[in-house]
Nucleic acid binder design. Structure first.
Length: 819
RNA sequence: GCCCAUGUGGCGGAAUUGGUAGACGCAGCAGACUCAAAAUCUGCCGUUCGCAAGGGCGUGAAGGUUCGAUUCCUUUCGUGGGCACCA
């Protein structure tokens, strides 16, 4: 809050630096005349009211307040996450949700866009992870230009990456939330626009995203003027244009952009072709390789080259300017919730005042109820004594999860420090996190926030590095099998409350596939319960079916335990009614990531109790590659458990007790050992833990077969195995009578001489078919191999005296003879 | 719809990164030990034709490059993760 992003130095500086600057030189343009409301001189700054000064500073702070849209649920009296909105209604209760502007805190991550991009060059993340972050930041180069509006002094600013297509603009689309909408809409179109705005307000972000095929929009009645040829361009609004990106307005070029094309076709807007035969009238062609036509001063130019020409002209004529845009937006940093760090901010006459250092930390107060506060504020707003401060009112929002997750690793370096989050000496000593293990689901959330946070701390000289994680390993997600119930809501039934009943998976699937229409669904309800049905006016009824996650522990296979369901969530579904099948309610299922919010978690304690932590640990590694997602399934854990028991039996016998001995190892045994050392070394280095576990299994199987109980071999195997099965190895180590702990034991040294093979049998293939095996010494050169092959009796017989076209010898693999 | 990942036996997965597909484990089948069970051990285990020896077909689907493709390229379908329809 007390920092701002300096655009000259490209880093965070204390806000006091900015205040000083304003006091000495104000905020004046580098060249050209100052614009009222944007620029001011030092003298003007000094006479601004305190409130006005703070408002100006707020626009530069790294943590700042602004108005943003949230999902508002009137019935629940609270703000909902996208996740909590399904089919446009709240997941809990099925109440309507709409967009609402509310004051929110943000972190100015957009200021760091370039540095977040650049920093990716210096960290070891997987390419796909870097790609995801780059796409999220979404840097694009283009031009912003102004179109005059017919019979109005107003202008509409659009951002485009394709200024070369300026003569192909057939309409302009504003985001429905755009401030110009109400100013330019003509009287004739007003009703229709209002209707459309109401519709958009009811749509969740998810819906606006998922239903792209459904084309919606509305004409404002106003026209813009193409600055180059004076052509009249109708101005529309449509939900596919987002208020938050660019200028919230686009110029549509239907012959070059498929979405614009579909929009034009749908609303019968004539299409101008500027790319000649590259446009076939059937679909848009986003090429940059066409020669421009119907394009005024750009005629005859290749589109690629025309971009620069257009840009130059746009700037020369003062129509607009080149601009770099990012698709990333500032990160919302407040939540209307209880659980989160409270903001150390007091509001006084509309000014945000941070608490003094002595007053920190500000702790979350105890509440009796977690219900939302008035006007959609968080639960803290309900505690009058807490909210009221001597000099104003406390901020009642709390911080989101990433306020903690972004920098917790620093606290681990100095956890008992009461003065600061982490002493600079400690963070310098430990430096960056060497290896960070996390799932890909954090690609554009946590990992980006954490990188931002670290950069800010670095700028403020609080830590000595600006990337938190040196190397990132993406472990796959363990997936769980989720269960769903399907909430059927019958709307327009005459009463305010929609009628709710739960239908089973079969009904839902049929309805979704269009095999069952509303009337048939209602018929089913009727067949089941006349009483429910009689209250419904079938003619008017509309239905909506929403899948809802239920706790897997309440479901036996796919059959819902109805009594448990009714008691669930403090009796939220106490009065639930069901449309059953043969007395059973059958749930739907889906494999998705295991997560509390999806109620599909399993408890590992039972397995640990039965098999021990070593087995559980090794089994998780054995499941598959760390990076791969895999569904959780315990069948197979027996195998790992058997392996550990087998290991135990190399040391102990049920009857004889201790059976390990001090005999000298044979070459065969040493071969097994050193092969294992090599494999484990490689696999551990490559994080290939599943194959490492396999290698241990092979090793123990082979040693068992040889009845090898020799300490010389066994203790080295134990040391290799420590990170995989720490408990059992420690125990067996002490049984061997060794002093100290196994962790102090030297790591086994690989002796290559036990890996050397003297000769090898190679498969010999003639024209791709494997014919025989021949034995060759290792380390032969291509010429030696050819000679040996040609002298081979069997090969000579196949060749029948004709020389082969080619002999391919792949080292240590096979020999291929092409006839 | 967009971005990222992924697809191999009944199942989890392996394949030295272009060189004998199915290591290791689970499940299954047969056998040994046992009064019996558990535990343990041995053998079989992609599919198909065949008594067998030995063939044919097989890495989501369709093409392509190559002497040779699970691996590289194009198209396409399915699944998982993320999302802010990004002009």
């Amino acid at each position: 809050f007390n920092s701002y992003f300096c655009n000259t130095e490209k880093k965070a500086l204390p806000i006091s630096t900015l205040v000083e600057k304003y006091e000495t030189s104000g905020a004046m343009p580098k060249n050209g005349a100052p614009v009222a409301g944007v620029h001011f001189s030092a003298e003007e700054w000094k006479v601004f009211s305190k409130k006005k000064q703070e408002d100006i500073l707020m626009k530069r702070r790294l943590a700042f307040c602004a108005y943003g849209e949230v999902n508002w649920c009137e019935a629940l009296g609270t703000v909902l996450a996208n996740d909590e909105v399904v089919n446009g209604v709240s997941e809990r209760g099925g109440f309507p949700v709409e967009k609402k502007k509310m004051r929110q805190w943000y972190l100015r991550i957009t200021a760091y866009a370039d540095r977040l991009l650049e920093g990716l060059e210096r960290v070891e993340y997987s390419e796909s992870m870097k790609e995801m972050q780059r796409n999220w930041i979404g840097k694009s180069e283009g031009a912003e230009m102004a179109f005059s509006i017919e019979s109005s002094a107003l202008k509409v600013h659009v951002y485009t990456t394709r200024p070369d297509t300026i003569f192909g603009v057939d309409f302009i689309v504003l985001a429905p939330e755009h401030e110009l909408v109400e100013k330019i809409t003509t009287a004739l179109q007003k009703d229709e626009i209002d209707k459309y705005l109401t519709y958009v307000k009811s749509r969740s972000d998810r819906e606006r995203m998922a239903e792209v095929k459904q084309i919606t929009g509305c004409f404002t009645g106003a026209y813009a003027i193409n600055p180059f040829d004076g052509k009249q361009i109708p101005i529309w609004i449509a939900e596919y244009v987002l208020a938050g990106y660019g200028t919230g307005a686009i110029m549509a070029v239907p012959c070059g952009d498929q979405r614009d094309y579909l929009f034009a076709k749908h609303f019968n807007i004539p299409i101008t072709n500027i790319i000649g035969s590259h446009y076939n009238g059937e679909e848009a062609n986003p090429t940059k390789d066409a020669i421009l036509e119907n394009s005024g001063f750009l005629n005859g130019l290749l589109m690629k080259d025309a971009i620069a020409v257009a840009n130059q002209k746009i700037e020369a004529e003062g129509i607009g300017k080149r601009k770099i845009n990012y698709r990333m937006r500032d990160a919302g940093f407040s939540r209307q919730r209880y659980w989160g760090e409270p903001f150390p901010i007091i509001w006084s006459d509309g000014i945000a005042i941070p608490l003094d250092a002595e007053e920190l930390p500000l702790e979350l107060p105890h509440v009796d109820k977690y219900g939302p506060g008035p006007e959609g504020e968080g639960p803290l707003a309900n505690i009058k004594e807490w909210v009221t401060a001597p000099n104003g009112m406390r901020e009642t929002s709390t911080m989101p999860g990433y306020a903690g997750s972004s920098w917790y690793f620093l606290r681990y370096m100095d956890p008992h420090n009461t003065e600061t989050f982490c002493d600079r000496k400690a963070s310098d000593y430990w430096n960056q996190v060497d290896l960070y293990i996390g799932g890909t689901e954090h690609a554009v959330g946590h990992l980006l926030y954490s990188r931002l946070w670290t950069k800010v701390l670095y700028d403020l000289d609080l830590i000595g590095y600006d990337e938190p994680y040196k190397k990132l390993l993406n472990q796959g997600m363990i997936q769980g099998s989720s269960r769903f119930v399907y909430r059927l809501m019958i709307l327009n039934v005459g009463s305010d409350e929609p009628k709710t009943i739960f239908v089973s998976q079969v009904t839902y699937e049929k309805w979704r596939a269009g095999e069952l229409d509303s009337l048939h669904v209602l018929d089913q309800v009727k067949a089941l319960d006349e009483a429910i049905f009689s209250a419904i006016n079938v003619e008017q009824a509309e239905i909506m079916i929403t899948p809802i996650h239920v706790d897997v522990n309440m479901v036996d296979g796919f059959e819902l335990d109805i009594e448990a369901f009714k008691k669930w969530r403090n009796g939220e579904y106490e009065k639930a009614e069901f449309l059953m099948e043969e007395g059973k309610y059958i749930c739907g299922s889906e494999v998705e990531k295991m997560s509390k919010s999806k109620y599909n978690t399993v408890n590992p304690d039972i397995l640990v109790e039965r098999y021990g932590a070593d087995t559980f640990r090794m089994y998780e590694m054995f499941l598959g590659p760390v990076e791969a997602s895999k569904p959780w399934d315990t069948k197979g854990i027996e195998g790992v458990h058997r392996f550990l028991r087998k290991l135990w039996r190399l040391f102990n016998d049920e009857i004889k007790g201790k059976i390990w001995n001090g005999n000298k190892a044979t070459d065969a045994e040493l071969k097994i050992l050193h092969r294992t050392i090599k494999k484990i070394e490689q696999d551990t280095e490559n994080f290939s833990f599943n194959t490492a576990v396999s290698a241990f299994m092979v090793c123990i199987n082979e040693l068992s077969e040889l009845k090898c109980h020799k300490k010389e071999i066994l203790e080295q195997v134990l040391v290799l195995l420590v990170p995989y099965a720490p408990h059992i190895t420690e125990e067996l180590w002490s049984q061997l009578g060794n002093a100290g702990t196994i962790l102090d034991a030297p790591y086994p040294q690989l002796d290559e001489k036990y890996l050397v093979e003297t000769s090898k049998e190679y498969p010999l293939s003639i024209n791709g078919k494997v014919r025989t095996n021949i034995i060759l010494a290792l380390d032969l050169q291509q010429a030696d191999v050819e000679k040996a092959v040609l002298q081979n009796e069997i090969v000579q017989k196949w060749l029948e005296g004709k020389p082969p076209k080619k002999i391919i010898y792949v080292k240590n693999k096979m020999i291929n003879v092409v006839i």
